[in-house]
Amino acid sequence: MSLVTVFTQLMGGMGITVAIFLLTLLFSMPLGMLVVLLRMSANKVVSAIMMVYISIMRGTPLMLQIIVIYFAPYYVFHINISSSYRFIAVIIAFSLNYAAYFAEIYRSGFKSVPHGQYEAANVLGYNRSQTFFHIILPQVIKRVLPPVTNEVITLVKDTSLAFAIATAEMFTIAKQISAKEASLMPLMAAGLFYYIFNALVAWGCAWIEKKYDYYRI
């Protein structure tokens, strides 16, 4: 069994892995922003709900969350689970989970912007949304880039947790081939894939960080 045939067999799984990765980022990054804005809102009830949400998402295993979200429609609502829901459940679970982590990262970013920036904007005639989008958000983005990069790299590896509900992502398939062929090679190939994927992601993040390097805070 050559590396090439292994990679060909793994191809479909790679596609799913990349899809999980991209869709999770697409949903969780803005959702994390919404969560943190609600978390920092003056409304104590809303803020408390978000705190509980964040603590549950961070305090329980992602694998458990995936399983619960996958089986919830059946056990809670007695709806039959269709096989196409498998992938959707993975995306929902990953997005909800990563949104909580991103929310905490964003929060530290917001807290590190000095209050004087809001006040300067205020006396210069910026309204609330202008202050947010023109003054605060760009500075928050710069500050959160390093921790966000860490989180994104963790996500690459976490995609393999989708095997918990037998999603045909890369790792699941590698395991199946490996068992069938009694060879470690498929798993090694999978490892190589994750490694290269991560290297690309890290390179992309470094490139973005560099773009924000033109000023210091």
Binding site: Q117, E119, A120, V123, G125, P138, Q139, K142, Y215, I217
Partner: peptide, 19 residues
């Protein structure tokens, strides 16, 4: 908003926009 247009303020620690 209109009244505030008459006012300028210079801070002790400048508060320039770093970006």
């Amino acid at each position: 908003k209109e009244i505030k247009r008459n006012i300028g303020l210079v801070f002790q620690n400048f508060n320039l926009f770093p970006h």
